[in-house]
Amino acid sequence: MSDKEKNILLEVKAVSKFFPVHGGFIFKRKLGDIKAVDRVSFHIKKGETLGLVGESGCGKTTTGRLILNLEEASHGIITFDGKDITHPGKKENRALKKEMQVIFQDPFGSLNPRMTVREIVGQPLIIHHMTTGKAEFKQKVDHLLEIVGLNPGMADRYPHEFSGGQRQRIGIARALSLKPRFIVCDEPVSALDVSIQAQIINLLEQLQEDFGLTYLFIAHDLAVVRHISDRIAVMYLGNIVEVASRADLYNHPCHPYTRGLLSAVPIPDPEVEAKREQFVIQGEVPSLMNPPDGCKFHPRCPRAIPICYEQSPSLLQQTDAGHWAACHNI
């Protein structure tokens, strides 16, 4: 194993996920596949945060679920710490849960309303036999709540008694309970109020520093992703169209879609806004059932050339600094 490979915690190689679509009343015919994730490849280094951005329906959440083995990949290989985890057995899967955890988007839907906070945060400890006796259990849960900035005195309350931001902290405490190395953060702040978002982002950054965590940070808010990520991958209709370090992606975006996305996000400063060149991507995201031929972005692309209509571009390295983009016309 080379040094570079040793540093890589997670690698996704040409992974696809197809969901079959059935139609018909009595005899179910297969109408086709929704290619939610289509030959996606990327890697995440130890201690790094990879941001995954894209619009709704681009496959970013499915990618996260494939890594967590909540969905099974149709094609491709996923490796974690050098081991193939694409189709883990039952025992292997259980062991993996200790290594990788998830923080969900919706702090209301992802906590069981009939369990107290102590039960929610402590359940993984019980399932994985990581606690002996009541006293240790209580002490461990109290400690987890303190880490995420909640008062352990509130551990016997139910989720509905907490605000959105506090619930998200409960979700984070639960994810941390098994001391994982890798966490998939699936839109962890998008359901929160602006003033609370910053609290949660800072907490996630602090935890990363303290515990050496590696994140896959899935979000649609480009400003948030830029703040927290070391490298960023941009997805469009199931494909990764650009991967680059944060500075490269935001300062020198290659792909027309990335440029359009960046330009669509208003900056909270009227002076900067007045000077910015505004490039509005026209049209809407096509249906995944029936994606366009060639480059999937070509119907909306201002720079499409004839080859874009026919051939789908592959992700090619643009600079030595690890800037990759999938576009015929760079």
């Binding site: 605000s163 931001g165 506090q166 109020d193 602006v194 003033s195 609370i196 978002q197 910053a198 609290q199 982002i201 800072n202 950054e205 480009l222 400003a223 948030v224 830029r226 703040h227 944060r246 935001y250 960046l262 996000v265 900056i267 909270p268 400063d269 900067v272």
Partner: peptide
């Protein structure tokens, strides 16, 4: 002032931590 400081901006220096408004609405 707190709101302005707490949102990440596309044109801002990334090394700075965000300054959230403490507490809950």
């Amino acid at each position: 002032i707190g709101l302005m400081a707490s949102v990440p901006k596309l044109d801002q220096d990334v090394k700075t931590r965000l300054q959230p408004i403490e507490g809950q609405p």
